[in-house]
Computed example of a mutant assay.
Amino acid sequence: MKRSIKSVLTASMAALCVLGMGMTANAYELNPEVKDVTPALREASTVGVWTAENPAMKEAPDKDAILVMTFGTTFTDTRTKTIDAVEAAIQKAHPDVPVFEAYTSHIIIDRVKANEGITKMTPEEAFAKLQAEGYTRVAVVSLDVIPGMEYSYDSVVTKMQVPHFKKISLATPLMYFQGTEGEPDQVVDFLKALSSQFPKMGKHDATLIMAHGTPHPGNAYYSVIQDRIQELGMDGVFVYSVEGRPNLEDVIPKLKAGGYKNVTLMPIMMVAGDHANNDMAGDEPDSHKSILTKEGFNVKTYIHGLGENANIRGLYVDRATEALDALQK
């Protein structure tokens, strides 16, 4: 009988030997004929929450912190309701571990500074601050929705900091596991949480959930989302993206073929920023609302970021808890 990733974790870890930094996380079971597991093979087989230990700081005292990484936003109102709200929820769940924040977009950092006089830290600046203040173990939490390009950046910048701390962990994004190898289906978890904000829909009503899109292979998650939408019987719900596939042009024929007349647009992004207010709901001729109206649909917009949904905030708290648990093992 095939064992799950978690069931083989302990045995796999005992068999792995990595020179320099010690890295642990969920891992696929390697063929028993593989006797000498190289660092590259070990890293390639890592899935789930990523952790790394620095043997040079083995005797350092444990002082823990949580670092939340987010792309950020220049929209003050949605920032308060989403990013700040998620961070507050994480802090409430872990009152004894301070929560810090880093913006990954340098453009947004500059604009927030210029327009509001507020200084947001880059990840590198945040890590330097934590190191200067004596924190030795850091649980990094990403507010990304899928493991796409932004999450890859979070991963790289986190791994570059390993020499400066005793231990680091990196949480998975909102959606990661898809129900294989005994792991949960976090796409289903996400959709169930999101459904609390769906409008009441009749036979001719559709809800289009707008994702960002990415050139990263992680864009394939949107196809998985649509598959799970169908599995869950969420008739009339379609996912599309601003900068990836499927896009609005892919969905419009499906709306017409299904006889839908009324459409509600809502973003599935952490914040309701420029994409939600302008690309999706703007009055310009090329906005999604305008395009659908021209195609004969009655269009409503739901301009709220995912961080406003208490159920979604709960999932991010779960990710933070998983990272913190891995950090403290």
Score class of each variant (00 low, 15 high):
61 P>L: 03
71 F>E: 03
48 G>E: 12
44 A>D: 10
47 V>E: 10
49 V>H: 01
51 T>C: 13
100 F>P: 10
78 T>R: 08
49 V>T: 15
43 E>C: 13
65 A>M: 07
86 V>S: 00
59 E>S: 14
58 K>E: 14
85 A>V: 04
50 W>K: 12
102 A>C: 07
55 P>V: 03
89 A>Y: 08
102 A>T: 05
85 A>H: 08
86 V>I: 15
82 T>W: 02
82 T>V: 00
62 D>I: 00
49 V>N: 02
97 V>H: 11
99 V>T: 13
81 K>Q: 13
44 A>Y: 05
47 V>H: 06
97 V>Y: 08
80 T>R: 14
70 T>N: 12
87 E>P: 07
61 P>G: 12
59 E>L: 01
72 G>M: 01
80 T>C: 02
46 T>I: 14
65 A>L: 11
50 W>Q: 12
67 L>D: 07
80 T>L: 12
101 E>S: 08
87 E>V: 04
75 F>V: 09
97 V>K: 02
73 T>Q: 01
47 V>C: 13
84 D>Q: 13
52 A>R: 11
63 K>L: 02
58 K>W: 07
55 P>R: 09
78 T>N: 04
62 D>G: 07
96 D>M: 06
99 V>P: 12
46 T>D: 10
64 D>F: 08
46 T>E: 14
72 G>I: 05
71 F>G: 04
78 T>W: 07
66 I>H: 04
56 A>G: 08
76 T>L: 12
59 E>K: 14
92 K>S: 11
83 I>K: 05
58 K>F: 09
50 W>P: 07
80 T>Q: 11
68 V>E: 00
84 D>T: 13
97 V>A: 05
49 V>P: 01
71 F>D: 03
57 M>W: 14
75 F>D: 01
73 T>L: 02
55 P>M: 07
53 E>F: 14
71 F>H: 15
44 A>N: 09
89 A>M: 11
95 P>A: 13
46 T>P: 00
50 W>C: 10
102 A>V: 07
57 M>P: 08
59 E>W: 03
84 D>K: 11
47 V>G: 07
98 P>R: 02
43 E>Q: 14
66 I>K: 06
44 A>T: 04
100 F>Y: 15
45 S>F: 11
80 T>Y: 05
60 A>C: 10
44 A>E: 12
102 A>F: 12
62 D>K: 13
52 A>S: 14
85 A>D: 03
43 E>V: 15
55 P>S: 10
51 T>D: 06
70 T>K: 00
63 K>P: 07
87 E>H: 05
